[in-house]
């Protein structure tokens, strides 16, 4: 960890980020899969470099700043590849900072995919073979960053040797990912590293995704609150009825706790915290989006209000970087092995 931010500094960053996305994203419209001009502006504003040390051209901001960006993107429901870009910046800063510059201005877009033994890097020819699932954004981005336990390979989307690309099922039209077959692809570059960096990157992606989900849940709760204050039935705002109040208060209770754990997950490189953060963020996001739809009544089921985008994103966010059921399995096996709550130290 580099530095810490006072609460008022963090609030300023959050305000800055939220205003940026509010200005740039039309809440009701469908989101494009990848919004390039948006990412260029994010790059120009330093969103991708803010966490780097001064020497690498950054502001040396702590992980809480990346969490604020994730929450702001969540409010606006911009899936990416900003998240991928942030974790790739952090990964390369650790092992290959010379490759950072193209990532920082948002003109070259990177997505990240985590691969295991199914991807083989031939040390003689330097080529990649195998099949990798959950390659985010496919050809909508420029580079794929394939992170494995032994090293990271950066491949140009559409490079020679890329075979079948099968689009994976999605509920959210602005989310897309592919199962990609690599048949002798030469990476643009490869860097060797151990499993620790793979795990750290994985944990960071989960933490940021949890922050995204919590930011989105917060926004859809606000949308629901605004609606129930104005919509009248029986001569009163429906928000004055206890059935509505208790449902939305319940969403708030989940949200407060999911948010604190998501913030902790970004701040601590810990696989159980990251997994638990995703589990709680997933529950809070789905329950809040579904609750918001319900308290809107019929109009919640239409495309005239933005609630449906949140419902779809909440379901979609369960798929990556690890299916949510795998997070539960991870927690369960941690329990069976040696999991304990982090001791106060």
């Amino acid at each position: 960890m580099t530095s810490t931010l006072a609460e008022d500094e963090l609030a300023e960053i959050r305000g800055h980020v939220d205003r940026f996305f509010d200005r740039r994203v039309d809440a009701v419209a469908d989101r494009p899969v990848v919004d390039r001009p948006l990412h260029e502006e994010m790059g120009d504003l330093g969103f991708f470099s803010q966490g780097l040390p001064d020497a690498l051209g950054g502001l040396d901001l702590p992980p809480a700043a990346a969490a604020a960006i994730a929450a702001g993107a969540g409010r606006a429901l911009v899936h990416g590849p900003w998240l991928d870009q942030l974790v790739v910046v952090e990964l390369l800063a650790a092992v290959a900072p010379q490759h950072l510059p193209p990532l920082l201005d948002g003109r070259v877009l990177f997505s990240v995919a985590f691969a295991g033994a199914e991807l083989v890097h031939d040390p003689v020819t330097g080529t990649l073979r195998g099949t990798v699932s959950r390659v985010r954004f496919g050809s909508h981005v420029d580079r794929w960053c394939l992170v494995t336990g032994t090293g990271t390979h950066v491949v140009a989307a559409g490079a020679p040797g890329i075979g079948d690309m099968v689009e994976e099922p999605a509920i959210d039209p602005s989310w897309t990912s592919y199962t990609v077959t690599f048949d002798g692809v030469v990476p643009e570059f490869s860097v060797a590293h151990g499993p620790e960096l793979h795990n750290r990157t994985h944990n960071r992606a989960k933490g940021l995704l949890a922050c995204f989900s919590v930011g989105a849940a917060q926004r859809v709760l606000e949308i629901a609150v605004e609606y129930v204050k104005t919509r009248k039935q029986f001569g009163k705002p429906v928000g004055s009825f206890q059935a509505i109040k208790h449902r939305l208060a319940g969403c708030y209770i989940e949200l407060v706790h999911a948010r604190a754990l998501a913030a902790r997950a970004v701040d601590h490189d810990d696989r159980t915290v990251a997994a638990a953060a995703r589990v709680l963020a997933d529950e809070a996001f789905r329950h809040t989006a579904e609750g918001a739809l319900q308290v809107h009544g019929g109009v919640g089921f239409t495309a005239e209000v933005p609630v449906h985008h949140y419902v779809k994103a909440a379901q979609q966010a369960r798929a990556w970087p690890l299916p949510i059921s795998d997070e539960l399995d991870l927690l369960r096996s941690a329990l069976e092995m040696d999991l304990l709550l982090p001791e106060p130290s």
Binding site: A260, T272, A276
Partner: peptide, 28 residues
Amino acid sequence: AKERVVGIHARAMALQAVVEANMTALDA
């Protein structure tokens, strides 16, 4: 039961994070 305790454990972690944040905010 193991599946249930995993959820309870995740909630306890979240509560710990909220309590720490609340105490820091009160001190400020």
